[in-house]
Design a protein around this nucleic acid. Sequence first.
DNA 1: TATTGTTATACTCTATAACTATA
DNA 2: TATAGTTATAGAGTATAACAATA
Lengths: 152, 152
Amino acid sequence: MPAQDQTASDQTDSAERTARLAHDLRIACMRVSRRVRFETTSTIAPHQLSVIVRLAHSSYSSGELAAIERVSAPSMSRTVGALVELGLVERATDSEDGRVVRLSLTPAGERELDEHRARRDAWMNEHLDGLSVEDRELLARASELLNRVFDQ
Amino acid sequence: MPAQDQTASDQTDSAERTARLAHDLRIACMRVSRRVRFETTSTIAPHQLSVIVRLAHSSYSSGELAAIERVSAPSMSRTVGALVELGLVERATDSEDGRVVRLSLTPAGERELDEHRARRDAWMNEHLDGLSVEDRELLARASELLNRVFDQ
DNA sequence: TATTGTTATACTCTATAACTATA
DNA sequence: TATAGTTATAGAGTATAACAATA
């Protein structure tokens, strides 16, 4: 095989390996994610949890949350209403613009999120418990890389 | 520090490292999974896709699918009905038990799944494209390990 | 008049209860 | 009589359209 063909062949192999990696990594991540969601029970619904996670990072208005979560304004209004009813989220009128409803977690909301995270982390922990030091080291480096590459 | 304390301390460190790994890995997998689901559009709804993926592996009855997906029998009946309407799934009476409805993908159903997978793999591929050979090698080994450990 | 958020109404997915067909 | 599946009906989340309050 001539040198230039060798190079072309190498590039093809690399693309094929990346394609296989893309598939295998996607399946792996989605499988883990699916099982975490499926096998850790929660009192609050997924769409409610999404809002709680957002509010844990910072305060948002109802409209901002609707845009981030890609649901309609009325839908988010309803979701927020339910969380307020549950005592997990607080509404407050914006001091600068009376139309805006500024949202934040209550202490109960923060507690709910903490407990939720603890359950999910514990599930994950159980499944990593039997792994060798080398395997755990591999996954630690992969996690760091993934969280860097896919940091939205 | 005496030797036995050193050992105890090592065990604590190991448990803490594993706990951190569990959290970081969970976040990484769920983040990737979330973005794949969020950023690859699909004509079919998630609950419909789940059924299609199951049927791609083997044939199931409506009741079996309801149990696997943890939804009620009427709910699965409805979901299957919609997929049949769309021409993606076929109903057939079981040859041994006239009560059982055996389900399978139609060629259109298989095509739908293939296209869906291709879109998601392509999304993943784009995000891995710029990585170094070493990073891709790391992720390939991690994927293999994860798919082995979390093989449902 | 434009914008933020909520209420009115309809559609979809889910559930439980009642029903049909088969074993 | 028991089981597999579907139909009847109700509850929850989401959407668009209409409305209220504020800028």
